[in-house]
Amino acid sequence: MAVSDEMAERLRAAFAPDELEIVNESGLHAGHGGDDGSGESHFRLRIRAPVFAPMSRVERHRTVIRALGDIPSRIHALALDIG
């Protein structure tokens, strides 16, 4: 299963988001640091869910990272836009 599909599955299960967008930006980083040649090393994530409303920015990030489980340790970069 593609990393982006794993992310989507875990985030939908954890948050039932109103909006979820995962963009694989690995191609933009080919040959740069962290590019492992897999084509799945750099991602941009945008998620919107009511559960995040009362949380601080740091709490939102920690909550999303926890929901992703081991995925962050298997990729090089993950840009988060959480609301």
Rank of each mutant, 00 (worst) to 15 (best):
E59F: 00
P50L: 05
A67N: 14
L28G: 10
G31A: 12
R57A: 08
G37F: 01
T63Q: 11
G33V: 09
G39T: 01
R44A: 15
D35F: 06
V64R: 03
G39Y: 05
V64N: 03
V58Y: 03
T63R: 07
L68G: 14
A30Y: 04
R60C: 02
S41D: 04
G34T: 03
D70R: 12
G69W: 05
I65C: 07
A30R: 11
H42R: 14
T63L: 08
A30S: 13
R46D: 02
R62H: 02
F52V: 07
A67E: 15
G31R: 04
P54Y: 10
S38W: 04
G37A: 04
A53N: 06
P50W: 00
R66C: 04
G31W: 04
S41W: 01
G37H: 04
I47E: 09
P50M: 01
H32R: 10
M55G: 11
G69K: 09
M55R: 12
H32C: 07
F43Q: 08
R44Y: 09
H32D: 04
R66Y: 00
H32W: 01
G33F: 03
L28P: 00
R60K: 11
I47M: 13
H61I: 06
L45P: 03
L28M: 15
S41L: 03
S38N: 09
P54G: 15
G39C: 02
P54W: 09
V64P: 02
H29I: 10
F43S: 06
R66N: 08
A30N: 12
G33W: 06
F43A: 11
L68K: 13
E59L: 09
G69R: 14
H32P: 00
A30G: 08
D36A: 14
G37Q: 02
R46F: 01
F52P: 05
D70E: 15
A67W: 09
F52W: 04
H61Y: 00
M55P: 02
S56G: 11
D70Q: 11
A30L: 13
H42L: 13
S38H: 14
F43E: 06
L68Q: 10
E40P: 08
A67Q: 12
S38T: 15
A49R: 13
M55C: 12
G37W: 02
G34K: 07
R44K: 15
D36F: 09
D35K: 01
F43T: 14
E59Q: 10
D36R: 11
I65T: 12
H42Y: 13
V58W: 03
E40I: 05
R62P: 02
D70H: 13
E40G: 12
V64M: 10
R57F: 01
I47Q: 09
E59Y: 05
H42M: 15
F52R: 06
A67S: 15
H29C: 07
M55V: 07
R62G: 01
R44W: 06
V58A: 11
H42Q: 14
R57S: 03
E40D: 11
A67M: 14
S38F: 12
G33Y: 02
G34M: 09
H42A: 10
